[in-house]
Design a protein around this nucleic acid. Structure first.
Lengths: 340, 340
DNA sequence: GGCTAGCACTCTACGTCCTCGAGTGCTAAA
DNA sequence: TTTAGCACTCGAGGACGTAGAGTGCTAGCC
């Protein structure tokens, strides 16, 4: 951004910092007063006019102060972000939440803590990648023809789903079948569970060919396609934000966040270089989200993404703070999940 | 209610019916015009003054029409409700939603359909009573010391939770233990699973005394205390209602509905004579719910409550319609759940 | 050339005032 | 007991004026 000299950047930064806190347009007087810039309001005004020209600021109306545009937030997060120190009580609180709890509730708790610390909506999900390794499979009889399929992966996650068979099956047979399949696919990678390999591996495991087919189908579908559980917490927090005091603005956002696939979309995992992902306003694909910013952090176990946590709030947010918070949370989660 | 003569009742009914649709105060003119009562606005005015005196109506301000009070809705649902006919396309839609779907998703789907048909928030939960019978228990190894406990009950529901053991346990041992416990407690009623009986029944099942203790503890806690999963759908619908256009009114309600225990509280099952339960405004225990009405319907499998579905909306709602809808939904659910 | 004091200008927020209309309660007559 | 008539009340909404915030421009200063 060569178009922004040092002073312009400094002014822009001050405006963003102030606006994020007050949600009110910022005037030249305020900028010049705060953090003694050494220049008068008049000079600031000139610079602000320039920044507006360049698309970083806009005026709600002629005699109001200025407000940062999405472009401003973008350059802010890309090049004006310092290391933000996270208060130790927040760190402590988060770690307390994650560690003293049943492992299967860790992610949910993370989202919960995140929502209450940030006052935004928090979302979280575990990721199932093709790299996931199956550790154990168990078929549990529900009715003579219906079984619950429980798969344990090396990410400590399990998924329960039910399957229906064409013919009744005896509990003992089911048990044997269960062990047999488990023994054969245990240790396999999820993305190796193609129809072909599955057939080859377990195709002749039992007389119950149709049972096996069914289980194979379920494994493929449920372990490779369906993402794990998705949590969202504190959606109502969005109503606390000044920009969503108008219900007609808030309603579409809340409706969208109630749809699982929307949240899943938001939570697409990043790569290791790209752990924290920031999407500002119209950068969101979803029309409903165009007045929101979404920040997500992916956490890794070993070198594989294990899950994603994030927040959804108005574009006006304390990016620095939220980013370090999410970053810390992701690290803590990796630790909590990684040592089951 | 001897204090209400026929004409007062009729007028009250008209006002409620109109108000529910328009959300605007109803004047004497409108009442007299609609459904030709045979009396002039002046007469209606006198009656309305009487109804206000008795606490059934109130005026937002001097020169506005009248609005029903909670007391009015109460007498309306208690004694003025006719049989409401449910359009057959709605019936069809609901049944289609419930039947063609994986059994474990039935209840969730029910809530979803309910929310989209009524435009209110829908809540649902399965009920676990002491009367539930355990059918099967399975311990699935997660790590050497951690197991997943899966319990299958005769309600077709299963609950997954994890337990940690003091000492590592071999998969084969675990399997034997699992079968042994399952064999011994299979068929028992949940409320017979007291510490004493559990000890007696499975106490000597294995050398792994601490394992057994742990499993017993989990069974007691998780099957008798924790209610099953709780679903809520379409909470954002509340923002569509005119009475919640003010965010400060809507926020507390939405926040409350995000708390699991609040929803659980709303969904306490009714008895068989009392399947549909209507709670109007301040009748709700929760302060946050005092501007809402909650209608729930309990569905039964055999003679035991199996679950509860309900809606949360403003006190101004089409009680007749919602009640017959819920009633039908509960019947359909009973049918869908009862024949697994 | 860059900075700034001064100033006229613009626009919103807000309070006041007014009118209109809806709906009421009361009274007197049918 | 009902109803027509009427005076009354009150909120919604528009017109108007003012105060204040913030701007852009210009002329002078370093």
């Amino acid at each position: 951004m060569p178009e922004l000299d040092t002073r312009k950047r400094e002014i822009l930064r001050i405006i963003i910092d102030d606006y994020v806190l007050t949600a009110e347009p910022i005037g030249s007087e305020a900028v010049s007063a705060r953090h003694r810039l050494g220049v008068s309001p008049a000079t600031v005004r000139n610079e602000m006019a320039g920044l507006e020209e360049l698309g970083y600021l806009r005026q709600p109306h002629t005699s109001a102060g200025r407000v940062p545009t999405e472009q401003a937030y973008r350059v802010y997060v890309d090049s004006m972000l310092g290391e933000e120190h996270l208060p130790s009580w927040e760190r402590a609180r988060i770690r307390r939440t994650l560690f003293g709890v049943q492992p299967e509730r860790t992610v949910e708790q993370a989202a919960h803590a995140l929502a209450s610390v940030t006052n935004f909506a928090a979302v979280a999900a575990s990721v199932t990648t093709g790299e996931t390794r199956i550790r154990h499979l168990q078929l549990v009889p529900l009715t003579p023809r219906r079984v619950l399929v429980v798969a344990v992966t090396d990410e400590g996650v399990f998924e329960g789903t039910t399957a229906e068979f064409a013919t009744p099956i005896q509990p003992d047979d089911l048990d044997r079948l269960s062990h047999e399949i488990s023994r054969r696919i245990g240790g396999m990678l999820l993305h190796d569970l193609t129809p072909r390999t599955l057939d080859a591996v377990i195709g002749d495991a039992a007389r119950h060919q149709r049972v096996v087919d069914e289980v194979a189908r379920l494994l493929r579908e449920h372990l490779t396609q369906t993402p794990g559980p998705v949590y969202s917490e504190g959606k109502a927090n969005i109503l606390k934000q000044p920009e969503f005091q108008d219900v007609r603005r808030a309603q579409p956002v809340l409706s969208a966040l109630e749809q699982r696939d929307v949240v899943v979309e938001l939570l697409r995992p990043g790569s290791e270089e790209d752990r924290v992902r920031i999407t500002i306003g119209r950068e969101n694909k979803r029309e409903e989200m165009k007045e929101c910013s979404v920040i997500t952090a992916t956490y890794f176990v070993g070198d594989r993404p294990a899950g994603v946590v994030g927040i959804v709030g108005p574009t006006r947010m304390q990016y620095g703070k939220v980013i370090s918070l999410l970053s810390f949370l992701a690290d803590s989660l990796a630790e909590a999940i990684g040592q089951p």
